[in-house]
Design a protein around this nucleic acid. Structure first.
Length: 300
DNA sequence: TTCCAGGGGTAGA
DNA sequence: TCTACCCATGGA
């Protein structure tokens, strides 16, 4: 299967994929030499499709899959890629704001901010839960084991797509803990999967939620295992950037930059208020800039 | 052994 | 609303 997608004028594949850590989480893989994102799109409990996404010129992407797909599955794959790469999101206002700040003008020039997300909000939720109170390396391992053990196989076997809510709901919490070694997060993941699979939790409602960000944050925090940090991360993944995900990394970063300010969550949030409603993106660019200065571009 | 990492839930004040 | 404590895991 081969299909193409038009991209916004401000889109660059490597920048979109590698500006957020999710690109190293299974089933995603970034080929820096070939400038290609390989991933597996789960279509249902029994069907997953391995796809490779490459840029074609400046204004399009080509999605290639070894499998031949019927029209409905091809459309589902296209929707998933659009969601992952935020092809339907307009960041023009953020870039215009960056133009007015010397510290962030480079962010505007490189069209920074299209941060990679998952094919589904469910997958995003599980991944965010697995970033809580754990080293990033362990997060990578947890997600790898979840996908490898309960993921949906592609026609050629491996790799697998992220398991559906129903598939994860069928896994007892203690098995999740023992096999995926997710620790106490097992109960959160099992409960989330069960509530989504049985219809008790409607994640689609979050995708289309049009209310204010405080209400979105409040609703996200009602999900077990989702607190202020995880909710801010999920809001960012849903395209709301006005709340910072305050974690040890942000506190360390803020303390380095502003050694005389006591970095409480409220003070950090207040500091970035000048970027409203793009506080998260403004901070994330600063963090990303520091990373690139130390390690070189993340997409190589 | 102890601490801590891209925190969250709960009880008690 | 705030604080203290507990929660698995694994590396330092």
């Amino acid at each position: 299967m081969r299909t193409t997608l038009d991209t916004p004028a401000d889109f660059e594949l490597g920048s979109a994929v590698c500006s957020h850590g999710f690109f190293v989480l299974s089933p995603n893989r970034w080929d820096s030499a070939g400038r290609a994102l390989t991933t597996v799109i789960t279509l249902d409990d029994d069907t997953a499709v391995r796809v490779t996404v490459r840029a074609v010129g400046q204004t399009a992407l080509r999605i290639a899959s070894p499998a031949s797909l019927p029209a409905n599955q091809r459309a589902a794959v296209r929707r998933a890629v659009i969601r992952m790469l935020r092809l339907d999101e307009d960041l023009g206002s953020f870039h215009a704001l960056c133009e007015r700040h010397p510290s962030h003008q480079a962010a505007a020039r490189m069209r920074f901010g299209r941060l990679l997300r998952s094919a589904t909000l469910f997958e995003d939720c599980v991944k965010v839960i697995c970033t809580c109170n754990v080293a990033w390396r362990q997060t990578v391992g947890m997600i790898e084991r979840i996908v490898a053990t309960w993921g949906v196989p592609t026609p050629d076997g491996l790799p697998r797509g992220f398991p559906t809510p129903a598939l994860l709901a069928a896994v007892p919490s203690d098995e999740l803990k023992r096999v995926a070694r997710v620790g106490y997060r097992a109960d959160f993941i099992h409960r989330l999967a069960t509530e989504v699979a049985t219809g008790g939790l409607d994640l689609a409602a979050f995708e289309s939620f049009a209310g204010d960000s405080d209400e979105l944050h409040h609703r996200l925090c009602r999900i077990r295992g989702i607190g202020p940090y995880a909710a801010a991360n999920l809001a960012m993944l849903l395209g709301r950037y006005d709340r910072l995900a305050v974690d040890t990394e942000l506190v360390r970063f803020f303390r380095e930059r502003h050694p005389r300010l006591n970095p409480t969550p409220a003070r950090i949030q207040a500091y970035y208020r000048r970027w409203h409603p793009y506080e998260f993106l403004a901070y994330w660019y600063e963090l990303w800039q520091g990373y690139v200065a130390r390690h070189g571009p993340a997409d190589t």
